[in-house]
Amino acid sequence: MNQLKLGLPKGSLEKATIALFEKAGWRIKPAARNYFPKIDDDELDCSICRPQEMSRYVESGMLDAGITGKDWTMENRSDTVLVCDLVYSKVSNRPTRWVIAVAGDSNITCLEDLEGKKISTELVGVTKRFFEEKNINVTIEFSWGATEAKVVSGLADAIVEVTETESTIRAHGLRVIYELMESNTQFIANKDAWADPWKREKIENIALMLQGSLNADRIVGLKMNVASEHMEALVEILPSLNAPTVASLYNKDWYSVETVVSEEVVRELVPKLKKVGAEGIIEYALNKIIS
């Protein structure tokens, strides 16, 4: 039987990734202290590993495909195939940012002020290349964690750290002076696996379903009935991806109307629909939107 070796990220992205796969149609059951979770697809063999190492495992062929961050693929300069971007994180479906931060009371206000300073980060390679391109001489030290504390304790003048909301950075009394890069989750593949017809089709099918699930984030379906005389007024205020679906009701001068809208507009939209004659309005959740 053909089987695809798939890498899933350990750590902060683990729960969000498992939830995304479940929404896409795969149920993954992780086990305590076990790096090989069960999945309800005999064609998949899953392993869990750190995102920082994922691209190296995929490049070497230990894994056929995997989910990691754009930042770590850049850090490792891995020669892999980018199957697709999957923009989600542990907090929200938006990119994360790598920023340069200093102490709140520091006299460092711009990149040039970092000349001759010490910077602590886990993203050593990307940071080193960035400052070399800027012709700014800095000392870069690898951080094993708790990077924000390095500035607070005086072990570094600045840090390069990943953030979504900057809440942790601010909680440590730090101030962002520059955004180094944006990063997002990516689905990558080994080049040999990508050249294999069966594996490529499997990888592309997984990507299609994962992207469909992300497309459905905060999108809902609305269904309602409306009398023919109110139809035009209703369609005028009804948003949709392309156009609403309309069907005649049996033996009645009424229509059934169905559309897809953003979740945040529903609270304003439903009262308006009611006013123009919509009845039996139903809101329902969506798992996937396949473009």
Rank of each mutant, 00 (worst) to 15 (best):
Y178F: 12
V126M: 13
N190E: 10
E53A: 08
G173V: 14
D85Q: 13
E258G: 03
D217P: 14
I48V: 05
E204F: 02
E182I: 12
K23L: 06
K191G: 02
F142T: 15
I203S: 05
G221T: 14
Q52T: 04
S167C: 13
A227S: 11
L174F: 05
Y284I: 00
N135H: 10
T147C: 12
K15I: 10
E236F: 06
W26L: 12
I18Y: 00
G104V: 01
S12R: 09
K10F: 02
S183K: 09
A149V: 13
V83L: 03
S153M: 12
Y284E: 02
R200L: 04
T259Q: 05
V138H: 06
K15R: 10
R200E: 09
R94Q: 15
K117M: 13
R129Q: 13
Y250W: 08
I108Y: 04
P95E: 07
F131L: 12
C49E: 01
N190K: 09
G154Y: 05
M62I: 15
P30S: 09
I282V: 14
E22N: 14
A146D: 13
D40H: 05
I290P: 09
H172P: 15
Q211Y: 04
P9E: 01
P271Y: 01
K272F: 01
S89A: 04
K274H: 05
S143N: 01
I48T: 06
E43K: 07
E263G: 12
K15F: 05
D41G: 00
